[in-house]
């Protein structure tokens, strides 16, 4: 099935989630992916001209109908609580405010990416992006 409207995620596991990957923040500072903190994302978004951090609360997590390797995560996004569903690999990591990397299957994330990860749960507030000029 096509991705749900409003959700733009890579179909597979991108290389930058592998432990040790070098990430450049908006101010030019370089950090390893496993060392990123909530403040790094917030400060980078503040510097950015067109991107804004939104809070996306996990409302539901269920197995995908298409493959056991995938999960469907439903988020409530931003102040208008827009409902957005994404279908992701169960090991796909999301960054939870004040907590760090979390996925539907943290054991697989740690195994495949070596990225320290906790279990993504309903009620977790993830960092997501929107365009600043969107009302």
């Amino acid at each position: 099935p096509p991705p749900p409207p409003g959700a733009v995620l890579p179909p597979s596991l991108p290389p930058y989630f592998v432990k040790g990957s070098i990430i450049q923040l908006a101010d030019g500072e370089l950090k390893r992916v496993e060392d990123l903190k909530t403040e790094d994302f917030i400060q980078s978004a503040e510097i950015s001209n067109d991107l804004k951090i939104d809070s996306s609360t996990v409302e539901r997590i269920e197995g995908s109908h298409t493959s056991p390797n995938f999960a469907v995560v439903q988020f409530s996004v931003g102040e208008h609580r827009a409902q957005v569903s994404v279908e992701v690999l169960v090991e796909y990591p999301f960054f939870v405010f004040g907590q760090g990397w979390s996925s539907c299957c943290p054991d697989r994330t740690t195994q495949i990416l070596e990225l320290p990860c906790t279990k993504l749960s309903v009620g977790d507030v993830c960092i997501s992006l929107t365009l600043k000029n969107l009302k």
């Binding site: 733009v8 995620l9 930058y16 450049q24």
Partner: peptide, 19 residues
């Protein structure tokens, strides 16, 4: 060594404005 921009790590969840 590849360097990735910070925003590539964050899902882009843009709520659709259907109205």
């Amino acid at each position: 060594v590849p360097v990735f921009p910070w925003h590539s790590l964050v899902p882009f969840l843009a709520p659709t404005q259907s109205d």
